[in-house]
């Protein structure tokens, strides 16, 4: 289990890069694409192997892109910017598909349903997860995060700012994380709140379900820890520490064996899920690493696993995972 630096592009954006997502290969396009979003208000697309520019930068993402998600079919993607608009666009042409917003609430992290039937967005200050269907782009649900039992009344309301969302690979569970560390799990089929997952008390900026075990949820938190939960049984089953600062981004390898995290401490760490131990630390970035993402399996000429990372230092990097 290791990462090997493969290719890096400095100055990939004019300024800090905050988001990255892989667009899977599609019928019309034999390879996956890497999307990156930046404070420079653009989203850019990159070829998966040489990081060559795939299409001209798409502007208009006012105030900076904070989150990116690609539809599993590999045709469209969604970008969220600080102006709280979700801009859904055609990956290849860059043409706008639709622009969503959940006004008055902010929007932060977004994720497509594994089958692509819905888009979930962390609803910021509304303290809820917003869902749209991907056919007509109509809102289908707003799932509020209930106050955990015994918690003290939240005077400011900012505590329940929902930051991150994740779908389980079977589409049955939906989880979201918030500024105060609250994690809520929903039954994504019945659209019903199930329970909270305890253990974090600081912002949970990134979360992901294991691709091989649809119950296992991994979270990255400002408390520098990575927690491993059984999202179904409501249990913390592991914790890993080692980052010196916030864990900003987290992703699981397609084989479900490894976790990769990007942190404010400027490093990327590779973790062995089973051993609950840090295996490798990459220090190639010189500022906060806001995004790490494994390329989804499939597509032409894909042999090894590949990881992409993006950082405040304006660079993006590719790694071979083996």
């Amino acid at each position: 289990m290791k990462l090997a630096g493969f290719k890096s592009v400095d100055g990939a954006h004019e300024d800090s890069i905050w988001a990255a997502a892989w667009v899977p290969a599609a019928d019309h396009r034999p390879t996956a694409l890497l999307l990156t979003g930046s404070i420079d208000e653009t989203v850019r697309a990159w070829q998966p192997d040489d990081l060559a520019v795939a299409s001209p930068p798409a502007g208009g993402h006012a105030l900076g892109v904070v989150s990116l998600a690609a539809h599993p079919a590999g045709v469209i993607a969604a970008a969220v910017s600080i102006d709280s608009h979700i801009r859904v666009f055609d990956v290849d042409s860059g043409a706008s598909v639709t622009t969503l917003d959940a006004a008055p609430s902010e929007v932060w992290g977004v994720q497509f349903h594994p089958k692509g039937i819905a888009l979930a967005a962390a609803g910021g200050g509304s303290g809820s997860v917003k869902l749209w269907d991907t056919e007509k782009w109509q809102p289908i649900a707003s799932l509020p995060v209930p106050r955990p039992e015994g918690a003290r009344p939240d005077k400011t309301g900012s505590g329940k700012f929902v930051l991150s969302v994740a779908w389980s690979p079977d589409g049955k569970l939906l989880a979201c994380g918030s500024m105060d560390g609250t994690i809520a799990v929903y039954d994504a089929v019945r659209m019903k709140f199930l329970h909270h997952l305890d253990g974090h008390h600081m912002p949970v900026r990134s979360m992901v379900f294991s691709p091989v075990d649809p119950h296992v949820l991994l979270t990255g938190c400002d408390d520098s820890h990575i927690h491993i939960y059984d999202a179904k049984e409501k249990g913390l089953i592991g914790a890993m520490s080692g980052h010196a600062s916030w864990v900003l981004s987290i992703d699981v390898s397609p084989d479900g064996m490894a976790v990769v995290t990007g942190s404010s401490d400027r490093t990327i760490r590779l973790w062995d899920i089973n051993a609950r131990a840090s295996v490798q630390t990459m220090s190639n970035h010189s500022d906060q690493v806001w995004a790490v993402a494994f390329r989804p399996p499939g597509g032409e000429g894909v042999r090894a696993g590949r990881l992409a990372s993006a950082s405040d230092d304006k660079s993006i990097s590719l790694y071979d995972y083996s």
Binding site: S16, W18, I39, L63, G64, V66, I82, E106, W108, G124, G125, S158, G159, F161, L163, M179
Partner: peptide, 12 residues
């Protein structure tokens, strides 16, 4: 300020 918002999105 945008960087700050990115770090602390709930700070109005």
């Amino acid at each position: 300020l945008l960087r700050a918002i990115h770090l602390a999105p709930s700070n109005y």
